[in-house]
């Protein structure tokens, strides 16, 4: 297969396992490209991409922008904090105004779940979801699974643990979908207050004791506590959270799990969900995830652009 089954990347749940494999195989080639003396290719030189960020982002925005530039696309950036959104403009009006400037693709981050689906049904452009509220963050999940595949050879049959604020995390949800489609087993772990009701219905294991969870898994993906999304206090103190759910070298030593692969979607709160010693160790593939993010996003943009017929 050499074509995606979808016209937009709105969420992992809309992709087939074959789509994900195609994205990974294409990303392998782009990873080669970004390690060459000249790190760009001319494929998207007649495509214009708008990055619409209605919510703050540093690494995702940089990663998308770099991916677009390395494909030779023209890029325009928009952030809600400095725009007419503050003056009362609706999402569709904002986007249609931007599309009038002959934009072919839109990469959008928005605080409302479903914003990218809503947009894809109403505007004539390819949409890439760069995070919609607590719903999905598909490119993060793709780069996470790609990084597991790179480190362990394949994702199928691997046991992957996701630790932390599952309730507010779009990374967790997209990761669960991606890992399951690729044949991995998934476990989530965190305080009961940060665990969504009915999470078991997604077919994941749930564990509240981090030690037990770490004994089970091959890979541990440590999520950040998203204090900015928490409207109430979900646990008594950060210190208590760290004692219960923080990943430290002492804990891995005690469990004899120095073989575990450790991931983190960033930004890291050192000393909260993960200790500096682990974040900087060879077990952690956090910086590989960042590098792979550019290659995976190049693959997504390239494959979606291919569907926009010329003329």
């Amino acid at each position: 297969m050499s074509e995606l089954s979808v016209p937009h990347l709105l969420g992992i749940k809309y992709l087939t396992p074959e789509d994900i494999e195609l994205i990974f195989n294409t990303a392998d080639n782009f990873k080669d490209v970004i390690n060459r003396p000249i790190k760009k290719v001319p494929s998207l030189r007649d495509i214009t991409i708008a990055n619409l960020f209605f919510e703050n982002s540093t690494r995702t925005k940089l990663s998308f922008e770099l991916a677009e530039k390395r494909l030779s696309a023209d890029v325009i950036n928009f952030s809600a904090s400095s725009s007419s959104v503050k003056k009362g403009e609706t999402l569709i009006d904002t986007v249609n105004n931007i599309l009038s400037m002959k934009v072919d693709m839109v990469v959008m981050r928005h605080p409302n779940p479903g914003a990218s689906v809503f947009l894809s049904e109403r505007v004539d452009a390819r949409i890439v979801n760069a995070g919609d509220g607590a719903h999905e963050h598909p490119t993060q999940a793709l780069l996470d699974s790609y990084s597991i595949r790179e480190r362990l050879g394949e994702v199928k049959g691997k046991r992957v643990l996701i630790v932390g604020d599952i309730l507010h995390s779009r990374v967790a949800l997209s990761n669960i979908f991606a890992l399951q489609k690729l044949g991995a087993e998934v476990m989530v772990c965190g305080p009961r207050t940060l665990m969504p009701k009915y999470i078991e219905s997604l077919g994941v294991r749930v564990e509240y004791n981090l030690d037990e969870a770490l004994k089970w898994c091959d890979v541990a993906n440590m999520l950040r506590i998203q204090l900015e999304r928490q409207d109430i206090k979900y646990f008594p103190s950060l210190r208590e959270y760290t004692m219960m759910y923080g990943l430290t070298m002492d804990r891995l030593d005690r469990l004899n799990r120095k073989d575990l692969v450790i991931m983190h979607p960033g930004p890291i709160n050192r000393g909260v969900e993960i200790s500096s010693e682990i974040a900087d160790s060879n077990q952690a593939i956090i910086l590989d995830q960042v590098e792979n993010g550019v290659a995976v996003r190049m693959a997504v943009l390239y494959l979606l652009a291919e569907q926009i017929k010329h003329g």
Binding site: N25, N29, V33, V41, P42, S43, A305, E306
Partner: peptide, 22 residues
């Protein structure tokens, strides 16, 4: 050498380009 990303018929073909390794 794979030339897929440098082709001048990207988005102009009936069938998608299959990318190979370099």
């Amino acid at each position: 050498l794979d030339v897929s990303f440098y082709r001048d018929d990207f988005r102009r073909r009936d069938t998608p380009i299959t990318v190979n390794s370099t």
